[in-house]
Design a protein around this nucleic acid. Sequence first.
DNA 1: TTTTAAAGTTAGATGAGTCTAACATTTAAA
DNA 2: TTTAAATGTTAGACTCATCTAACTTTAAAA
Lengths: 223, 223
Amino acid sequence: MTNFEGMGSLTEENYIKSIYSLSLEAGEVTVSELAKKLNVKLPTVNSMIKKLAAKKVVSYAPYQGIKMTEKGKKEALSIIRKHRLAELFLVKVMGLGWEEVHDIAEQLEHVESERFYNRIDEMLGKPKVDPHGEPIPDVNGKIHSKNRLAVSQMKEGTSGKISAVSNDEKSFLDHLNAKGIQIGDLITLKKRESFDGSVLIITKAKKETMLTHQVAERIWVES
Amino acid sequence: MTNFEGMGSLTEENYIKSIYSLSLEAGEVTVSELAKKLNVKLPTVNSMIKKLAAKKVVSYAPYQGIKMTEKGKKEALSIIRKHRLAELFLVKVMGLGWEEVHDIAEQLEHVESERFYNRIDEMLGKPKVDPHGEPIPDVNGKIHSKNRLAVSQMKEGTSGKISAVSNDEKSFLDHLNAKGIQIGDLITLKKRESFDGSVLIITKAKKETMLTHQVAERIWVES
DNA sequence: TTTTAAAGTTAGATGAGTCTAACATTTAAA
DNA sequence: TTTAAATGTTAGACTCATCTAACTTTAAAA
């Protein structure tokens, strides 16, 4: 089965998505970061990067980092749009839980059909955020993102409404479900432990819960 | 009926689906029929058949035809179930036309998620037929199919209610749409031309329309 | 029944995406 | 500032799904 013009293979799409998300953290992406994220070896990434560079999706020079081009960003945002629309659709229309939609969306994001995604977009009322509070790029790849602050960065004694979590894997969301944490909840930061960065928060249900740094930096409040 | 363990690649799934549908016509499938259907050359089919035979999905001996095993049939029915559920979902829930769902379903049928398909099945009320009137296999691969008669086989002067069309490609369905033919319509066969097998029918809208043999043998009435 | 056409098979090549082993460069430590 | 560790690259091999070219078997025609 052939792929459409312009768009790459499934594998290429996965590289593009990963490069994009890593580049949000650091700007430049290294070959080893990418290899780790995609669960392949360094030479595999190396050869694929050359191919993507030839296609002008990334810019790259040996031993220098990998940088996305505008073309690459557009493709990445198109895939992310599809992924997030799919997740919201699975939750809102199909009644699945926010913790179980990631793996399905990971497959649906590769479906090639304007019609399919436009209908989803319409049915959901051209939504701005996915079930995890992450912004959904519009058809032109534009993201309307709000200012936000990681729980790990909140000042002691302050409160905030949870607006997003930046990880949609089941294990992470099961963890949040177990602690009764959801998008929209008002939480208060009671204490931060300086030696390990863990935080003690007071949840909506007035319960105290400890979050490790890795968890707290992936939960965001409006700011 | 599992999707995960022994399930093959996307390519294998497409072979299995094609072998199954060809075998419904003839029982035994030839290498060249399959090559034509999948749009690949003979040696490509030859080598893939060996692989599928090794996996006990088909039985095969050189120069003899290809025959599906029970295991192969089960896999085929699982894929067909997903394809038809997807088509009905796209029409009923997402409001797409019956002529535009095939290509999307062709992609969705490869989604691996029991959860996804069970929800679709539930939302649709465990449906028995897809938008083209074709039966949807249940989770165990069982098909509840009604007796039916091809329009090409109807006796002159008899009437029947259209129960299915056995081709879901856009070009074919656009053709039927243009003639105003839909599932559930009552039609009457006025005349059959013996030299080319074409038929003249009277549609629901009381209009006379000519159908070629190729079209008439793909439209079915209840019997 | 012999010959020819059609269908099927084998052998070997290709491109995509992956790997391991060996080598090169950059960065961090001693 | 030299050396060791980490990171990146090249070369060559493997699997999957495909191809073309050449050969074999079966079926159809003369």
